[in-house]
Amino acid sequence: MRYYLTAYIIFWSGLFLYLAWLTGRQAWLNRRAAGLVERLIAQGERGGES
């Protein structure tokens, strides 16, 4: 029972750690995209002023 439960816990930990890393990367990607959109808007505004 000990080995069986340990194997399942390690399996789920591995899978969830990878999913957590994937989610963190997605959050970083969203922030980077949002920053880029802000830059584009700022550039558009500057272009509109000139």
């Binding site: 080995y3 340990t6 591995g14």
Partner: peptide, 20 residues
């Protein structure tokens, strides 16, 4: 990346099965 993750899980689960 995914292959490495599941290769590691195969080895670890195999070791935990082999122990008893």
């Amino acid at each position: 990346e995914i292959g490495f993750l599941f290769c590691s899980l195969t080895l670890v689960t195999g070791m935990l099965w082999g122990s008893p």
